[in-house]
C-alpha cells in the first residue's frame, strides 16, 4: 500500500539521497546519543573486556614471532596500556583513559573531517539538506 503511490509525489530530496524519516532524532540528539554510547563503552564497559591476548598476540606467543619484540617508545606515556598513570583503582584508571581516548579521537577525527569537507555556499547560511526535508532542527 505504500510503494505504488510514491512515484506520483513531488520529491523534496535530491535524487539518490536519502532523507531523514519524520520522527527521527535531530543531528544534535543523534550526536549526543552516539557519543554517550562511546563514552559508556570506553569508560565503563571496557572494565569487563576480556584480558586474554588477542589473535595476533596469541599467535606471536605460540609461534615465537615476538622474540624480537621491542616495547613501545611511548610505553611511559601517562595513558600507556589504557590506564592513567598514578591512579591505582583499575576501574577508575581504565575508565578515565577510555573517556580521554574517545574525546581525543572525536576532536582529531572530527577536526580532520571538518577541514577537508566540501564547502558549498548555501551550506554556510543554513543546513539545506535538513531544511529540504521540511525540518528546521539541526
Amino acid at each position: 500500500m505504500t510503494s505504488g503511490s510514491t512515484s506520483s509525489q513531488p520529491d523534496p530530496a535530491p535524487p539518490g539521497r536519502e532523507t531523514a524519516p519524520p520522527r527521527s532524532p535531530s543531528m544534535k540528539a543523534f550526536a549526543v546519543g552516539a557519543l554517550l554510547i562511546s563514552l559508556i563503552l570506553a569508560g565503563v564497559v571496557s572494565f569487563y573486556a576480556s584480558g586474554n591476548p588477542d589473535g595476533l598476540t596469541r599467535v606471536a606467543a605460540d609461534k615465537g614471532l615476538d622474540e624480537r619484540e621491542k616495547s613501545s617508545a611511548t610505553a611511559d606515556s601517562p595513558l600507556a596500556d589504557y590506564a592513567v598513570k598514578d591512579i591505582d583503582n583499575p576501574r577508575l584508571s581504565g575508565g578515565l583513559a577510555g573517556v580521554l581516548g574517545v574525546s581525543i579521537v572525536l576532536v582529531l577525527a572530527g577536526g580532520v573531517a571538518y577541514a577537508v569537507r566540501r564547502r558549498t555556499p548555501e551550506a554556510d547560511k543554513a543546513a539545506p539538506s535538513d531544511n529540504a526535508a521540511g525540518r528546521t532542527r539541526l
Binding site: M27, A31, A34, L35, I37, S38, L39, L41, A42, V45, S46, A49, S50, G51, N52, D54, G55, Y82, G98, G101, V102, S103, V105, L106, V107, L108, A109, G110, G111, V112, A113, Y114, V116, R117, R118, R119, T120, A123, D124, A127, S129, D130
Partner: peptide, 26 residues
C-alpha cells in the same frame, strides 16, 4: 564529507576507539 556529515566522521572514529577497547573472548 559536507557540513552535515563531517561530525559523523568524529563520532564514528570515537565509537571505533571505544569498541576496540572491548576485547571479546573467542
Amino acid at each position: 564529507l559536507d557540513e552535515r556529515t563531517a561530525p559523523m566522521a568524529g563520532l564514528v572514529a570515537a565509537f571505533i576507539f571505544a569498541t576496540q577497547m572491548l576485547q571479546f573472548p573467542v
